[in-house]
Write a protein that binds this DNA or RNA. Sequence first.
DNA 1: CGCTTGACTTGGAGCGGCTCCAACCCGGTA
DNA 2: TACCGGGTTGGAGCCGCTCCAAGTCAAGCG
Lengths: 126, 126
Amino acid sequence: MRISEAAARSGLSADTIRYYERSAVLPPLPRGADGHRDVPARMVELMTLLHLLRETGMPMADLRRFTGLFRQGDATVAARRALLEAHGARLKARRAALDRCEVLLARKMEVYDQIEGRGRAERSGP
Amino acid sequence: MRISEAAARSGLSADTIRYYERSAVLPPLPRGADGHRDVPARMVELMTLLHLLRETGMPMADLRRFTGLFRQGDATVAARRALLEAHGARLKARRAALDRCEVLLARKMEVYDQIEGRGRAERSGP
DNA sequence: CGCTTGACTTGGAGCGGCTCCAACCCGGTA
DNA sequence: TACCGGGTTGGAGCCGCTCCAAGTCAAGCG
């Protein structure tokens, strides 16, 4: 399939796909007779995973290692598992940050309510 | 207090604090006789908020607007609320991404279990 | 008193991860 | 034939830090 379709399906942008290929996060993609990339359907699955991993904070270097391992087949499953488990920890940390932020926003909203309340109904009764 | 203490308390790095000052995310910080920044205690609160907002994906431009409004006092509460509410949407999106990623990781782990299971106990009974 | 240590200062370079752009090519349709 | 709508490349630009060199100053110590 064309790069644009792979982009649409995986969630990566076409630019990002090309960038990933350049920087060895993706393997060299096969080309059609016209020199255009002809993305194998099976690649889209990997791209989607990469998209999700990056979106949630896995660094490029780890993506690179991951796809490298992936290309070497089942013998590397243990190493891949380790990478993904490490990422699990990152997810946890991110969730914690989201939680903290949400709590703080809620508190801020209360403060704002009070300020605006005072503004609208100054010295309102108890 | 010194910049290092403000950093430790807020979660921002000293470098980042200086960078934020340079780029008008923080107001010009007062200096002591020795030329060192003397961070007012009240600023730490703002820095902590900024840290949490950035950590969860608010862009610099919004931080800048936020602190700008903050410095203008209570009249800007509505605008600040709007910024924080917009950020609430970002939090939601991030959480969704985390969720999707976690689901996918769990699935991957199952796949890996099977592959490794096959490896260790080939053609084990039903 | 001089010397070292440590925390700070500035300006500027470097980096991760894209994102956008100009300039070009190719195949298909009006 | 002229023009689209895709694709290609190389390279610049951007965001948000992060690190570094070179310098200044204050405190503590022999």
